[in-house]
Write a protein that binds this DNA or RNA. Structure first.
Lengths: 103, 103
DNA sequence: ACATCACATAAGCACGCACTTATGTGATTT
DNA sequence: AAATCACATAAGTGCGTGCTTATGTGATGT
């Protein structure tokens, strides 16, 4: 399962898909816009992201709406937490993170 | 670079190596103990982890000591920060993280 | 100096993976 | 009910990747 996540994110196309979904959920056809990717390829990528729990589907008629699944991200956070002793303490990303989570 | 990281972590053997180094830095030979992996394979895995900045080397005589490189982890945190809007707010891992970072 | 040790690199191979084309499935439209 | 649409699945293919064996390199030991 942790394996599924890292394997899913190892592909740049899937990271792009995930990033696009993070900016708003949409269906598979909409996801293809401006991505130069075939319909089966998109479907296969979404299947991999689904298995990794990075993305979840929501049937709406004959469309399938896709959205970010927090479970996958939670598992990455969990994995990262194991190594928090090595996290640099002063980097901007971390400060950003802290600021955002404080409120 | 972010690509190098996810690709590096996509392999279970490399994740194991990384985890072992997180529990204490050591040289390549010591890393092989109990892992049933050839010397060249280990060397190649370490090269991939190095390129991803997840690990860094420190020559000591004819030994090469390996340790976790915080830079790689920082990049993952940075990547994760982009999706913090989707992080679940009540999971244990997150609470653990916060508690540890507060002090 | 030579041998040996710790590790890196080279080259070849088998397997996994991302793609393709073709076809299947279930819902909507007319 | 027949056609069309949105998407999934099947099967085949080329390439990347992780392994192997063989060899190179640089440091230590005798």
């Amino acid at each position: 399962m942790e394996h599924d996540i890292f394997r899913a994110l190892a592909d740049p196309t899937r990271r792009t898909i995930f990033e696009r979904l993070a900016n708003g959920s949409m269906n598979a056809s909409a996801l293809r816009q401006g991505m130069d990717i075939s319909q089966p390829a998109m479907s296969q990528h979404l299947a991999v992201l689904r298995k990794a729990r990075l993305v979840r589907e929501q049937r709406e008629g004959r469309f399938v709406n896709y959205e970010v699944d927090p479970d996958g991200l939670a598992l990455i956070v969990q994995w990262l937490a194991k190594y928090r002793a090595y996290w640099p303490t002063r980097i901007d990303a971390l400060k950003l993170l802290l600021k955002d989570m404080d409120q």
